[in-house]
Simulated assay, not measured.
Amino acid sequence: MGRRSVEVAPVGEDLTQLIALWLEARVDAGSSPDVCARAVSDGRFAEAMRRPGVQAFVATLDGTPVGYTITTDNPFGLSPTPEVAVEQLFVCPEARRHGVAKSLLTVVLSVAERAGCEQIVSNVPTTSREANRFFARLGFASSVTRRVVGTGPLRRRLAPETAETGLELTRRRRSLRQRAFVPTRSA
C-alpha cells in the first residue's frame, strides 16, 4: 500500500477548516469545549489570525483536513536576526505517523527561507513527550524554558499580605451568601 497523499495550503479568509482543527486541538489539550467555542464566537480567534505576521496552513490527507500550523514572524522582537515561530502545530490523532507534521514544517521552512529567516523556533509543551521527541529528531534544540503564570497567583505570591487567601475568600463568600438568604419563619 502506498503512502497517502498529504497536501498543505495556506489559510485564506475562510477560517472554517482551521477553526474546526483548532477546536479539536484545544479540547485534545484539555481545554473546555465551551471556552474554546466562546473564543471563536466572540471573534478573538479570527482577530488573532489577522494580526500582522501571523500565517496559518492546513494539511489535508486524501482531501480531509487533518492538521494545521500557525506561525508568526519574529515572536519576541529582540532577536538580532529574523525568525519564524511555530506557535501551534497539530495533527489529528488518527492522521499521525503519515508525514502530516513533516509536510507542515516543510511549508514553514519554505516561508522562513523566503523571508530571509535564519532560525525557526517552536514552543513545545514540556509535558508533551511525543512532541518534544519529534522536534528534537528534526534538530530543534532546547534554548529556553518559558514559564507562565496567571496574574492572580502571581499577585498572591508577590504580595501575600494584601491578597486574600483561599480560606479568607471562602469565609467571605459564605458570609455574603448567608446574609443574602435569610429564612423566614412561618407560624
Rank of each mutant, 00 (worst) to 15 (best):
M1N: 13
G2D: 15
R4D: 12
V6P: 06
V8L: 06
P10S: 09
P10K: 09
E13Y: 04
Q17G: 09
L18D: 00
L18P: 06
L18M: 02
I19W: 05
L21M: 03
W22V: 05
L23A: 15
A25I: 05
V27R: 01
V27A: 00
D28F: 06
A29L: 13
G30D: 04
G30E: 07
P33H: 02
P33R: 02
D34Q: 12
V35G: 14
C36G: 09
V40W: 07
S41K: 09
S41N: 09
G43M: 07
A46P: 03
A48Q: 12
R51W: 06
P52Q: 07
Q55V: 09
Q55H: 11
V58E: 05
V58T: 05
V58R: 04
A59K: 00
D62R: 02
G63L: 00
V66F: 00
V66C: 07
V66D: 02
G67R: 05
Y68W: 04
T71S: 03
T71N: 03
T72G: 03
T72K: 05
T72R: 06
N74R: 03
F76N: 15
L78R: 13
E83W: 03
V84D: 00
V84N: 00
A85T: 11
Q88I: 04
L89F: 01
C92G: 09
P93W: 05
P93G: 10
A95C: 04
H98R: 10
A101D: 08
K102C: 15
L104T: 02
L104N: 01
T106K: 14
V107R: 09
V107K: 06
V107G: 01
V108S: 06
V108T: 07
E113R: 15
R114T: 12
R114V: 13
R114I: 10
A115Y: 02
G116E: 02
G116L: 03
E118M: 12
I120L: 05
S122R: 04
S122K: 04
N123M: 13
P125R: 09
P125C: 08
T126L: 14
T126R: 14
R129Q: 14
R129A: 12
A131T: 01
A131C: 05
F135P: 02
R137I: 07
T145Q: 11
T145I: 15
R146D: 10
R146L: 11
R147H: 13
G152L: 10
P153K: 05
P153I: 04
P153L: 01
R155A: 15
R157L: 11
L158T: 09
A159P: 03
P160S: 03
P160L: 04
T162N: 13
T162K: 13
T162H: 14
L167N: 13
L169H: 08
T170F: 14
R171H: 11
R171W: 12
R171E: 11
S175E: 13
S175I: 06
R177L: 15
R177M: 14
Q178S: 12
V182Y: 07
V182T: 13
P183W: 05
P183I: 05
